[in-house]
Design a protein around this nucleic acid. Structure first.
Length: 293
DNA sequence: CAAGTCTCCTGTTAGC
DNA sequence: TGCTAACAGGAGACTT
C-alpha cells in the first residue's frame, strides 16, 4: 500500500536520521524479512556491520542505503505493511518487529523494520555502474525522477497491448504507482481503468502523466496517505492525504465533479474505484468474425 | 515472449 | 456470540 509518496516520506526520514551513521549490530528477528538475501540472515547481519550509511535513495517504491567503502547497498521494500522506524533504543519492541539495526554512536536511537504482513523486506545487493542495486535494474524511472523520459513513456504505452491501469501499475514501464494513485490519476484524467493503451492519443497520455505527478506531489506535501497506523514516516506519524482522495475508497459517495455515486469494481484481485459518468467504459471492440466483413 | 494469473501474509470487518 | 469469508495488494513466480 505504501506507494511513491509514502516511500519518499520514509526516504527523507532515513536521510535525516540514519545517513552518516555507522552500523554496529544487526538483528534479524524474522527470516522472511531478509528472504531476498539468499545467503541468509546471518550473512546479511555480518555484511552490514561496521559500515557507515550513505545517501538514502529511492526509485519508485524501492529505497536503498549505500554502504560506504563497498559497492553495495541495503535495499528496502515496504510491501503492504512495512515500516522503517527510528526509535529510542529503550522503546519496547513492536509486535511485528522483524529487523533491528543499531549504530555505534551515542544518539540513542536505532532503526527498526516492522512489518505485519511480511510482504516487504531488506536485502543487500551489488550496485550497477549507475549506483542502483542490481536486482532493481528492471524497475523503470518514476514520474518524479527528473530523468524520466516522457516521450519514451508515451511510445512504450502505445506499444503495449493492455489496458491503461495495468500499464500504470507495470513497474517496468513507470514505477511508484500503486492502486491508490492509479485510481486517483485516472479519475482526474477522466479515463476508465479498462481503456486500451493502444490508440490512446498522445495528448491523453501526457495529460494522464501530468495527473500522476500532480496527485503524487500533492500527497507528498502532506506527508503521504495513511488509512491507519500502518502507513507512517520514520517517526511513526501518519500523513493526511487520505482526506484528499477523490476516487480510492469512495464507493457509494458522490463524485466530487458531477455528484454521481462512485463505484467499486473487483479488478485483478483488488478493486478499482471510478465515477461511472466521468469515466465512461471503453466501447467494446469486436474482432470481425471469420467469413464476414 | 508478452500478458495474464497465482501466491505469499495477517489483521480487520461484514455477514450469517 | 462465534465462525467463516472477503478484503487490503506489491511483485516475483508461474502459466498461457
Amino acid at each position: 500500500m505504501p506507494e511513491l509518496p509514502e516511500v519518499e516520506v520514509v526516504r527523507r526520514g532515513l536521510q535525516r536520521w540514519v545517513s552518516g551513521r555507522t552500523i554496529a549490530e544487526v538483528q534479524v528477528l524474522h527470516p522472511r524479512a531478509v528472504r531476498r538475501h539468499l545467503a541468509g540472515a546471518g550473512d546479511f547481519a555480518a555484511r552490514l556491520k561496521g559500515h557507515s550509511v550513505g545517501i538514502a535513495r529511492r526509485r519508485g517504491k524501492y529505497l536503498w542505503l549505500p554502504l560506504a567503502d563497498t559497492d553495495s547497498s541495503v535495499l528496502g521494500h515496504l510491501g503492504m505493511s512495512g515500516q522503517l522506524l527510528v526509535q529510542p533504543e529503550d522503546a519496547a519492541d513492536e509486535k511485528h518487529l522483524r529487523i533491528r539495526i543499531r549504530f555505534d554512536d551515542s544518539l540513542g536511537t536505532e532503526l527498526r523494520f516492522v512489518d505485519q504482513r511480511t510482504f516487504g523486506g531488506l536485502s543487500l545487493h551489488d550496485n550497477t555502474p549507475d549506483g542502483l542495486p542490481d536486482v532493481i535494474a528492471h524497475i523503470a524511472r518514476d514520474p518524479l525522477d527528473p530523468a524520466f523520459d516522457d516521450g519514451g513513456f508515451h511510445t512504450a504505452l502505445r506499444l503495449r497491448r493492455t489496458t491503461v491501469k495495468r500499464a500504470l501499475l507495470d513497474q517496468s514501464l513507470i514505477s511508484g504507482v500503486g492502486n491508490i494513485y492509479a485510481d486517483e490519476a485516472l479519475w482526474r484524467a477522466r479515463l476508465h481503468y479498462e481503456r486500451p493503451t493502444t490508440g490512446l492519443p498522445r495528448a491523453r497520455s501526457a495529460e494522464l502523466l501530468g495527473h500522476v505527478r500532480d496527485v503524487m506531489n500533492a500527497a507528498l506535501a502532506v506527508g503521504g496517505t495513511s488509512f491507519d497506523s500502518l502507513y507512517v514516516n520514520v517517526n511513526g506519524e501518519s500523513g493526511y492525504f487520505d482526506r484528499s482522495l477523490d476516487a480510492y475508497g469512495r464507493e457509494g459517495e458522490p463524485c466530487r465533479r458531477c455528484g454521481t455515486l462512485m463505484r467499486r469494481r473487483p479488478w485483478m484481485n483488488r478493486s478499482s474505484y471510478f465515477c461511472p459518468r466521468c469515466q465512461r467504459p471503453p466501447r467494446i471492440v469486436r474482432t470481425p468474425l471469420p467469413g464476414k466483413l
